[in-house]
Amino acid sequence: MIDVVINVTLLAFLAITAVAIVRMTNLFAIIMLYGIFSFLSAAMFVVMDAADVAFTEAAVGAGISTVLMLATMALTKDHEEKRPAGHRPWLPLAVVIVTGAALVYGTMDIPAFGDVDAPAQSHVAPYYIEKSIVDTGVPNMVTAVLASYRGFDTLGEVVVIFTAGIAVLLLLGGRRRKTAAENRGGEGNDT
């Protein structure tokens, strides 16, 4: 019973925070609320037995993402979202409501939350739950799958992050060199 109460409350908080994010215009407040949103979702992952996911989300989602967004805000020096006057929200709202209704219709056939006999629990997962400790000797099944069974996938993930890092450096690194060169050029003209 207590599980259900925590579940319902945390998810309600998540929904409220998300709606508050949409309604606000101050970017600093939005980014802070996004940090709260991320942290609430990490708490939600703990409730749903996903400890590894929870601390990744708390460190990476609530920590690094928030810092990156704050850095962007500092670099763009834009603290307020502008709302154009003659903007009609009805079309996007209609699209969102229709899509949401279709998705809710889709959930009618999903097995209930926490169902032990759900198809997702009965095909591939039992193998890993029973055999991962025998095959790899790692008690944490998530780590066993991530680093041992699917080690190459994790290597691919590292390649993705590396590529993104290079792309960020290319986008922002050239800028610093250019501004430095302009500054030097400016000084040259002065003297």
Binding site: M44, M48, D49, A50, F113, G114, D115, V116, A120
Partner: peptide, 8 residues
């Protein structure tokens, strides 16, 4: 994660 949760 919701789909992966087993109650108990």
């Amino acid at each position: 994660i919701s789909i992966g949760t087993v109650s108990g």
